[in-house]
């Protein structure tokens, strides 16, 4: 499930939990997997998994109940969507723009391509995750 594209494992873990939250597999105020459960699932060191959980805790996506584990905050979904729009999507778009420049693709041409891709993936509402 994990990729070896150079993205640190703990970030991949964080992203995986985010996606699960977006999919609704972890609801607000529900407990997410412990570092040990995650370690077991992905065959990774539990310290790495803990680091991934802490990233999310720092971003207010998860909160800690002492001795019980990490739980999903009420705002989690909104935060994740906001973050992904601003970081991941922006980053991807930047890359597209860079590549378009290198290939001398004009703005209009790019827009056409984008719209076509949108249509092919089932319109604007297509919320399939990109992980």
């Amino acid at each position: 499930m994990l990729q070896s594209d150079g993205t640190p494992i703990y970030l991949q873990i964080a992203e995986w939990i985010e996606t699960e939250i977006l999919k609704g597999n972890f609801q607000a105020d529900e407990k997410v997997y412990s570092q040990y459960k995650l370690a077991e699932m992905f065959t990774i060191n539990p310290a790495t998994a803990a680091k991934g959980l802490n990233v999310l805790a720092n971003e207010n996506i998860l909160y800690t109940k002492r001795g019980l584990g990490k739980f999903v905050t009420k705002e989690a979904k909104a935060i994740i969507i906001h973050k992904r729009k601003n970081q991941k999507l922006k980053g991807l778009i930047n890359e597209i723009v860079m590549e378009a420049k290198r290939l001398h693709v004009r703005e209009e041409e790019l827009m056409v391509m984008l719209k076509k891709a949108m249509k092919e993936s089932g319109g604007q509402s297509g919320g399939s995750d990109s992980l």
Binding site: I9, I44, N45, T48
Partner: peptide
């Protein structure tokens, strides 16, 4: 190392 690295702290 590349096979093992996920296990390591």
């Amino acid at each position: 190392l590349e096979e093992l690295e996920d296990l390591l702290e």
